[in-house]
Amino acid sequence: MLLVTVRELAVDRHGQRAVDNLSCRLHPGELTAVVGPNGAGKSSLLQALAGVLPPARGRLEFGEQDASAIPAARRAQLCAYLPQAEMPAWSLAARDLVALGLLPWGKTPDRNARVLDALRQVDALGLANRPVTQLSGGELRRVQLARLLVGNAALIIGDEPTAALDIRHQLQLMQNFRQQADSGRTVVLALHDLGLAARYCDRVLLLEAGCLRASGSPLEVFTPDLIGAVYGVSCEFRWRDGVADFVPLEVL
């Protein structure tokens, strides 16, 4: 169980401020979506959470602890991060790619069992021995998700994990993330698909130009006014039983 608190965070990327003065909380057991237009700072925020980019100002707290005071290996045990469009350089077998998720733990005696268990959780056990360069996009994403799960990290971060997947694989992957949140983990995903965000997430952070424009439940954040103002698109949300159908209409 890990409560992540972000306090007045600023993140610089390529010498420019990408995230500014952002405060929020990520709760254990919740699936949080980070949404916003391209360049809004979604990836930078996730990279700061993952320890890839250092905060320029403000701080991150993992539980009670200042995240920057946690040694790198321990922090890697706490949080697992899947960057946008991660492509393995070598044609590792899927099980060997998943095992890389155990690197922060050093020698693990039950390595094999844990790897297979992680693959089983994402319904990819049959892919264990396949070279990852021969997997389809959806299969690769599932194997990468298993890599995030294998170390039992309390915080799971995914940067647009559903991008470039067909609708079936999108739903399957989101269900996987949902299960992880339901099992008590803190899950945060950058998403472009507002429909998926509305359906699967407990909480939405809407970013605009590096700042937090709105946060709350999907019902609170996904209003035609707010989305119109941030994305410059007129749209409709048709809510049925708390689930939204998102229909973008036209450019404003």
Binding site: A72, A76, E86, A89, P104
Partner: peptide
């Protein structure tokens, strides 16, 4: 060697696995 292993996923992933610096 473990840095090289982590790096097979890319630089950002390697950092997130604890191999920054």
């Amino acid at each position: 060697r473990n840095y090289l292993r982590a790096l097979s996923l890319g630089e950002a992933s390697a950092v997130s696995l604890g191999f920054g610096g």
